[in-house]
């Protein structure tokens, strides 16, 4: 149980999510060590980490499904788990499951009534959402006859039913084909455009790269780094080059100008903080009489960044 002093509301209303040294243990196993996170309202936020990093446990604590062992969490200004604030929250679980004897339209009706939505509003909202996720032709079909992808689309629809201010999407593209993944991307953009905050947990880094404003890298239940995506990915560059006649002095001087220099035979790889630095590096190499056969700058992908920050072992 929470042992820290309890305050019921956050003092920072501009934040959609705020956690302070959040911790969760299951017996002797530490699932989340000390999660401190701030997500401003209106942002699409990516929550990245290897398997077992504590992402799902963190999301469950934010949703009130799991009680933190220690620390504080606030969602939309209220304590995480507050029943009234859930009216403004949408959630798509990683493996969306519901009563398979319901039809698609009935499922949305049940969820709408659990949200306390009035009937007239639901009557308009259900067809609208089923059309949006491409399930209108299947509205009378029972869930037991749905494919995994169709279930995921329906799960997405129920997460958007109440036009939430904050949407948690836990692996939303799981089981989806390319068209389904595009639907998720478009939906996230639409939600951002109407001012909602999206908290996205996904292993598909290419999707995160396209949709998120900011990402947090989490490992062993701790945030290692939080980065704004647009500026970061425009700036940092990986260079791979093939060169001969690289003297030890030239190599040492290069190591001062770049980061993470690795030399394997004729092949060199390194990072530079900006593409603007590349001409100066080429001029330097030529001035050192280095014979350059190949020089290939590449923008750092989110995957590169992930591996750089989290490590290749994935925290296992």
């Amino acid at each position: 149980m929470n042992s820290s002093p309890v305050s019921q509301a956050s003092s920072r209303p501009n934040l959609a999510i705020e956690t302070r040294i959040l911790r969760k243990t299951f017996g002797s196993k530490v699932a989340v060590r000390r999660l401190t996170l701030e997500v401003p309202r209106g942002e699409v936020f990516g929550f990245l980490g290897p398997n077992g990093a504590g992402k799902s446990t963190s999301i469950k604590m934010l949703l009130g499904l799991i009680t933190p062992t220690r620390g504080e969490a606030f969602v939309l200004g209220s304590r995480a788990g507050d029943v009234s604030v859930r009216r403004k929250i949408g959630f798509l679980p990683e493996h969306f499951r519901f009563y398979d004897w319901l039809t698609a339209a009935e499922l949305l009706d049940v969820h709408g009534r659990l949200y306390g939505m009035p009937r007239p509003r639901l009557r308009g909202r259900i067809p609208e959402l089923l059309n949006e996720v491409g399930l209108w032709p299947h509205r009378e079909k029972r869930l037991r006859d749905f494919s995994k992808g169709m279930l995921q689309r329906l799960g997405l629809a129920q997460a958007l039913l109440n036009e939430p201010d904050l949407i948690f999407l836990d692996e939303p593209t799981s089981g989806l084909d390319p068209a389904g993944r595009k639907l998720v991307r478009d939906t996230i953009k639409l939600q951002r455009d109407r001012g909602a905050t999206v908290f996205l947990n996904s292993h598909l880094l290419s999707e995160v790269e396209i949709t998120c404003d900011r990402v947090a890298f989490i490992k062993h239940g701790e945030v290692l780094e939080t980065r704004r995506l647009g500026t970061l990915l425009e700036g940092e560059v990986t260079v791979t080059m093939r060169a001969r006649n690289v003297s030890p002095e030239a190599q040492a001087a290069l190591a001062h100008r770049v980061s993470s220099l690795q030399v394997t035979g004729d092949h060199l790889t390194f990072y530079v903080p900006s593409g603007d630095d590349l001409p100066a590096i080429v001029r330097f190499l030529v001035s050192q009489n280095v014979d350059v056969y190949e020089f290939t700058p590449q923008r750092l992908s989110l995957e590169d960044l992930f591996l750089k920050i989290v490590g290749k072992d994935g925290g296992l």
């Binding site: 949703l63 009130g64 499904l65 029943v83 009234s84 859930r86 009216r87 929250i89 959630f91 679980p93 493996h95 969306f96 499951r97 519901f98 009563y99 969820h111 659990l114 949200y115 306390g116 799960g155 129920q158």
Partner: peptide
Amino acid sequence: SGTIHAIATKPLT
């Protein structure tokens, strides 16, 4: 089964 997740995150105790 995890069905409870979609229910327990709705605005009801």
